[in-house]
Amino acid sequence: MLIGTFGGAVSGRIDGTRPGLGLRHPQHDRPLRQHRSRKITTLRLPEFGAPGADLQQEYADALARGITDAAPQTCGWIVDLRDNTGGNMYPMLSGIAPLLPNGPAMSFRPRTGSAVDVMVHDNGAGMGGEAEIKIDATTKITDQPVAVLFNDMTASSREAVATAFRGLPNAASFGTPTAGYTSANSVHRLPDGAVLVLTGAVYVDRAGVDLAEQPMPPDHPTTAEEAPTAALAWLRERGCAAA
């Protein structure tokens, strides 16, 4: 359903003969990598399109289990969103929910009408009172520092994940500005097989800042390649040093 007027950065018509975006299966591109010597866990979140419910659930479960398993040996986290061009945000938001406090993480604001909150729960994230994709309820890990990495290829729903960490006292971002596709879109299939994508709302962060379909700047600007090094230094400053 289109929840507002349209005409944003990702609005447009996709020809029906154009190949679809590829999907990286969670088993082939694992979302978890741990730097055990530094007690720092890096969560690499590969792009994820709009596959069936089983793959969405598998992605969210793999990410949430990885966080839970790594938590006892971890004092700081890196969430790597670089080179992630979008797709379905809910497998990622539900999977990353153990690192986010319960309550509103961001909202969608249409041109007219009320904003709709995206809520984090013990068992995932979604709009309204329940998670869109449910994970096993886990203990929250919201007292440890989280460094978020992004670049100009971090787009659309992946910018939603970055938005969910904006304004948290234990989080900071590193890299280059994102792509600026911070909007909610509806997809309409036309009779000739083409797909029409319409923008209906923009992202608003937890502090009420309208991201206005502009690139999201990092808290600590670096090159995309230098972002991990800067994030590790920031984590060390917060007491998460090499063992």
Score class of each variant (00 low, 15 high):
residue 130 E to N: 10
residue 11 S to H: 07
residue 231 A to P: 11
residue 190 L to E: 08
residue 149 L to H: 04
residue 7 G to K: 06
residue 162 A to C: 02
residue 151 N to V: 00
residue 126 G to P: 07
residue 216 M to S: 05
residue 194 A to Y: 04
residue 144 Q to L: 11
residue 240 C to H: 02
residue 70 A to L: 00
residue 182 T to D: 13
residue 197 V to N: 14
residue 7 G to R: 05
residue 140 K to R: 09
residue 191 P to A: 03
residue 129 G to W: 08
residue 18 R to D: 13
residue 150 F to D: 01
residue 81 L to E: 06
residue 198 L to R: 15
residue 236 R to E: 15
residue 201 A to P: 11
residue 67 I to A: 05
residue 209 V to S: 10
residue 193 G to K: 05
residue 70 A to E: 06
residue 114 S to F: 01
residue 241 A to W: 04
residue 200 G to A: 14
residue 72 P to W: 06
residue 139 T to R: 12
residue 90 Y to S: 13
residue 63 L to D: 00
residue 161 V to N: 00
residue 172 A to C: 00
residue 103 G to W: 03
residue 161 V to W: 03
residue 140 K to G: 12
residue 157 S to N: 12
residue 188 H to W: 08
residue 6 F to W: 13
residue 146 V to N: 08
residue 26 P to N: 09
residue 232 L to A: 13
residue 47 E to C: 08
residue 87 G to L: 04
residue 6 F to E: 11
residue 152 D to G: 14
residue 29 D to P: 07
residue 81 L to T: 00
residue 56 Q to T: 06
residue 33 R to T: 13
residue 196 L to M: 10
residue 122 D to K: 13
residue 112 T to G: 04
residue 151 N to G: 02
residue 51 P to F: 04
residue 4 G to V: 03
residue 73 Q to I: 02
residue 2 L to E: 14
residue 54 D to P: 05
residue 230 A to T: 10
residue 56 Q to F: 06
residue 35 H to I: 12
residue 58 E to G: 12
residue 103 G to Q: 03
residue 54 D to S: 10
residue 228 P to T: 14
residue 227 A to N: 11
residue 130 E to C: 10
residue 213 E to K: 03
residue 225 E to Q: 14
residue 10 V to K: 12
residue 113 G to P: 00
residue 168 L to E: 00
residue 163 T to M: 02
residue 241 A to L: 10
residue 162 A to K: 00
residue 99 L to V: 08
residue 227 A to W: 05
residue 114 S to W: 00
residue 161 V to A: 03
residue 177 P to M: 02
residue 111 R to M: 07
residue 227 A to V: 09
residue 158 R to T: 13
residue 165 F to G: 01
residue 119 M to T: 15
residue 230 A to W: 12
residue 177 P to F: 04
residue 103 G to I: 05
residue 97 A to N: 03
residue 24 R to T: 11
residue 63 L to R: 02
residue 178 T to C: 01
residue 182 T to M: 14
residue 236 R to Y: 09
residue 105 A to W: 03
residue 23 L to Q: 08
residue 26 P to D: 05
residue 185 N to P: 14
residue 165 F to T: 00
